[in-house]
Design a protein around this nucleic acid. Structure first.
Lengths: 211, 211, 211, 211
DNA sequence: TCATAAACGAGACGGTACGTCGAGTCTTCGG
DNA sequence: CCGAAGACTCGACGTACCGTCTCGTTTATGA
């Protein structure tokens, strides 16, 4: 069915896989995404080009996996802690939804404003915009898990009577998150803590005057 | 000061400029952004490559100008009409903000869901995400004028007493527009009329229960 | 040490090498040396440009090798004949040096006067004049072997008592050959059989009156 | 007859002409012939490219004229001296042909061995080898006048009884000059005073044993 | 325990496009 | 109204990477 026989993944060299991911990450950090090449990754990893082409369809896919890996490794480092200590591991629930959201969104703002950390994510996002398959992977592996945390927190708020029952948490979350993403990706206006607060306030209280 | 002396733009051939923009637009339409090359544009335009490199720094910049030009030409075509006939020329004001926004956002959804029309915009957006200079141009020339229409409409609603006085129209607009952009760019979930309506309803009424 | 690592010549594709040489020779024959380009050679040979740049430093070097190759192939064709049948394979020795030299130099005149055959040699010679490295290769591979034949014949004439003992064969040979080369390259005056004869006569008998 | 109307040479700006020649000579001296370009000459001369194309067919032709000019200027500088003081202004006649020729040819050797002085001549010669029209100009303007000096001297030697009557001075001169040119252009072996002497001796006395 | 088949490193290959250079032509403007 | 200035089309340059394709060389079972 497939024009080429699939490689036997049980024989795959994990040493090469890791070296490739590491090389990809470091190169993106050093020269940026656009000037990172498959040849460069292979050279830095001490690997034949074919070993990359055998297992990944594109440079972006390599980076995708490198990112996912890195995330998994970081998660593993804190496994068993039992308590979320930052936005990545759950949104706090102090009973004050506005405060909790502001805390998390301010942290998000800080993360997005760090140029070194965010540049590769930005590149990967842009690539995912053009390449649907890659974009789907990006959303599934990196974005959606984050967004689900908002769903969870918003449902809790509904049960606590803080949020109206007729609210769709999935839509609500996008009201909160999309504006930050918008400013981050398109650079229309500065992305600040004040903006994060304003988004939360506007979203929670609504635009309309009270009926 | 500059490493290369700037060309004298008063001597610029407008015939070449237009041919290049036309060729760029048609090529992007035919083969997509990624497979459009500077050489291809030059060949189709019957122009030397150097004439492109003399005036534009990148393929994306050519397309940027081609888009802006096209927009300007379309605007010129309807000049003097006096009445906005679609969302690009102003948001209607029937006195019912929710209805007006739904109308416009549904039209936006339709535009974004048209693959042929939206693909080049998507590519240009992605390119602007990676290249700040280009992104700034994109925002200034194409995006911001659209967003200002929302500001205008929201201010009118404030004056009409439909929208609370303590709302910042700039933030409010992003609450409405960013979620659509988010789904369009990241393809997290389908972009439908129902979603546009839900965004408007959630944004206007707010998430919180009434105090 | 070297700015670029040398390619591994054991992996070199001989098929490509031959195709490139053949293409180069045929192109020079068809359009002349100046209008032969590396791109043209690559295209005609069905080869990537890089494959030429990997192994040769210049267009002239390609032709140099093509010429040498062709010479080697022609020599191989007549191997085992045992008897020289033309000037390229040795200067005849009939005991009459003047007659032998006239024979050979007349043949040389004919070769140099054939425009099709001599044009590439002329181009290569001119290129070698400007580029010392190439010139050295030209002399070593193509010219010097020819000149040695004269040394051999002149030594035989010395042993036979035809030529004075105090003559340096290397200088003598240049007295015979350089005038023809001079007229051929610089086109001062026509290059004829009569001229070849005159050169031999003048050189053998000397300019001075008898003491 | 000509496809383009010939420019009116009476209107020609001599200031431009000189500036172009000067620029050409200085550029060839600084960066070599191959890397001297028409654009470079025009820029250095403060002249439009068209002003060069109007009056010369090629880079080589510009240099040709520049050289001729320079030669004429140098000759003018010593006009009226009445006595030739070097090979360029006539071959001395002391009554000893061998000595006179050695003197001149040694001076020629020195000139040809000076890399700075000879490089442009070498380039022009090479160009003349490939381009017959240019070569004819080179021979007529620069080479032939030099060679005629040898004819003159050799005829004097014939009249003085030093040289045999049946010698053709034109052939004889080539016996003397061509070997030096040969070594100079093709770099087969070093070009030394000893070689110049050997050429004179071999040519005057001949190769054959006395009958 | 070894043979054997796969993945591996290395890198040459045919290609495409890059961005630059210069050729020679054409146009504009200033003295 | 000539000529400087330089923008134009064109073609080739030499480079960078692409993705494919051999080459030997590990390596890791399964016969």
């Amino acid at each position: 069915m497939s024009p080429h026989k699939a490689p036997d993944s049980s024989r795959r060299s994990d040493r090469s896989r890791r070296a490739i991911c590491d090389a990809a990450l470091s190169l993106v950090g050093e020269v940026g995404y656009a000037r990172t090449t498959i040849e460069g990754i292979a050279a830095r990893a001490g690997v034949g080009k074919q070993t990359i082409y055998r297992w990944w369809p594109s440079k972006a896919a390599v980076l995708m996996e490198a990112f996912t890996d890195e995330g998994a490794r970081r998660s593993a480092d804190v496994e068993g802690v039992g308590v979320a200590e930052d936005g990545e591991l759950g949104i706090p629930d102090t009973g004050d939804l506005a405060a909790d959201l502001k805390l998390v969104l301010r942290a998000t703002v800080d993360g997005l404003n760090d140029p070194a950390a965010a540049a590769p994510t930005r590149a990967l996002t842009a690539e995912g915009i053009m390449d649907p398959a890659l974009g789907a992977q990006f959303v599934e592996n990196l974005l959606e898990p984050q967004l689900q945390l908002y769903v969870t927190r918003l449902r809790a708020a509904q049960e606590a009577g803080e949020v109206r029952e007729d609210i769709d948490p999935r839509v609500a979350l996008e009201l909160l998150v999309a504006p930050l993403t918008h400013r981050w990706l398109l650079r229309t206006l500065p992305l600040t803590h004040a903006y994060a607060d304003a988004v939360v306030d506007h979203a929670l209280r609504g635009l309309s005057v009270r009926p």
